[in-house]
Design a protein around this nucleic acid. Structure first.
Lengths: 341, 341
DNA sequence: TTGAAAGCGCTAACAG
DNA sequence: CTGTTAGCGCTTTCAA
């Protein structure tokens, strides 16, 4: 099944390879007649330029790399969707890699992307990434790079984020406004900016109210998982009989909390109000439905690709590129795990 | 930031490019001394072979394409995860594309994969794909291809599937065994094999029991969505006051049904038993938790890559490759939307 | 044990 | 308007 190449077309038409190439590229210095003959034959033979050869010449792969912590998370799946959609409409394919929240893997994946000569990289840092040498390596090679969601503030590159602190502040404040006096936070023990910021938002909201900040109300979910939420819920109830509000770092945690609380026959929201984070679909099918913060995954993916694309273009044309930090709006979604105002 | 090439290494060491290449590839006819010098320098300069050049020579991209109907579906996300994981451990990267259940897009995506010269393609057919000319084109070019989940029976290639009919039969039979007499099915109006087979399984189970098959109990969900389930549930209750069992084509539909039924204060499972299909995480957080059929997405992804990989290897070494059809086991997951036996 | 040279398929500068 | 040629970086004969 030998592939059809320019040579074959040229030979068949008795013209040179260069002429065939130019005809296909629509160069102005080819007669309409030849152009047509080439185009027709190419069409007929279903000619597809060999991308390896094109890439070798142009040093462009028209492929970008996307590193995701966990594909099976609703939010990240939306991000992938967004990236792929926008990439495709700009002629780019996307290699998707998963870091599984491991620093080692993340580094490895980045290496693979370098090996594949991708034109740019989109990455959301793993929860366990502290050393960013591997990211800097990419940058030092001049490969366009955009961080999304879990960013590293000090890295000088474009970023797409939400305002985690503000969103958390609003969520917690809502709890306060609906009358909660003893509000717990379930956070993570790791340091991606999102985790820290959501905690800071929670704390700021408490500080801005007339509730006293109580350190013992802050719990740590090691894996940010459903099970974590499930277990911590029980612990919380032991520690604080009069708990009346919970702001969880993620929807999965919140869902775990909800499940356990229901088993313990705690009334939600009457006795305890609960707010999650991300607006995973599953929060809208629990009973009660869980209030949460909408995190626009699809848009984030699109925007991230957009910035990357601009940077790739700029690099290609030797223009300088202004880093951008885009902050996407979030929205508090009020459902039935919180009391009405 | 000029990339480090073999030439640079060769020049720096005062040897030829060919020698440098061979040293790196571990050819036996290079002296240990030279070999070491080359390896050391390559290491030091962080040399990465230019994949474009390698690909151009070898006609291999070490990239495969994966076409998914909907990334944001739990099941498909698991498939992606499986494919990516196995691909990576075999040195392959994965370009992920989404068909959005549109035939047109599917065709377009396949074209993009051809353009990118992927070494193989993994595809789950869109619900609207009837004409498989585009698939045949891939095959005719000799590009290894494996179908997973939504397959086309008549296409001669490797496939990874579950036994939808049997799984549906078991689910429905379980409903019957727990005493249901009037069991509805919510299916799709399209013809991927999965939809048909699940319906056939349902029907076979009814036929094998002493319940009379009643066509009016079979409903069609146009989009296989939550909303479809939600709306159809209401219709069903109007049509059949004495309905006592529902087997839904997918978990999303089942969840929609559950939501509506709860709103209508129908007791589940006392009055109506409900079974979904796929075992999405969300079915385990509803109240009651929904019984369903586990569909091993991750394993399916792994296995699909496996078969593809074997085929790629076979092709590469000019060996002939036996198509395989792998059937993965499913499992009925009994939760609280069905009565105990 | 090493190196020269051809060639994968394409593009673009240049010459005719 | 068309063709010749060089070269992208690598691998692999084949000759030295």
């Amino acid at each position: 099944m030998p592939n059809v190449t320019l040579k074959k077309i040229a030979d068949e038409l008795g013209i040179s390879i260069a002429t065939a190439s130019k005809a296909l590229k629509g160069y102005p210095d080819i007669s309409d007649a030849t152009k047509k003959r080439v185009l027709d034959l190419a069409e007929k033979l279903n000619y597809r330029p060999n991308s390896f050869a094109q890439s070798l010449r142009s040093s462009e792969s028209q492929i970008i790399g996307l590193i995701i912590p966990e594909i099976t998370h609703d939010f990240f799946a939306k991000v992938i969707h967004g990236v792929i959609t926008c990439a495709k409409s700009n002629g780019y394919a996307v290699i998707v890699l998963q870091s599984g929240d491991s620093y080692e893997k993340e580094k490895e994946q980045l290496g693979m992307l370098l090996d594949k000569n991708v034109d740019g990289v989109l990455i959301s840092l793993s929860n366990n990434t502290k050393d960013i040498g591997h990211i800097k390596e990419i940058k030092s090679k001049g490969i366009p790079l955009v961080l999304y969601d879990r960013i590293y503030k000090l890295l000088d590159c474009s970023k797409v984020v939400i305002n985690d602190k503000k969103a958390a502040y609003n969520a917690t404040t809502h709890l306060i406004h609906t009358g909660c006096k003893k509000i717990a936070h379930i956070g993570g023990n790791l340091d991606p900016q999102t985790t820290i910021d959501r905690f800071l938002g929670y704390k700021a909201a408490i500080d801005d109210s007339d509730i006293e900040y109580d350190k013992s109300l802050v719990y740590i979910a090691k894996n940010l998982s459903f099970d974590d939420g499930y277990q911590i819920a029980e612990q919380m109830m032991k520690d604080h009989k009069d708990l009346d509000g919970i702001f969880a770092l993620t929807d999965t945690i919140a869902t775990g909390v909800l499940m356990k609380l229901k088993e313990m026959e705690v009334q939600i929201p009457e006795q305890i109000s609960l707010i999650g984070f991300s607006n995973w679909f599953l929060t809208s099918v629990t009973t009660p439905k869980i209030s949460t913060v909408n995190q626009p995954g699809f848009e984030m993916g699109c925007k991230a690709f957009d910035l990357l694309f601009k940077e790739i273009q700029a690099k290609k044309h030797g223009m300088l590129f202004e880093k951008e930090i885009v902050e996407l709006p979030t929205e508090l979604i009020l459902r039935n795990s919180t009391k009405p105002l």
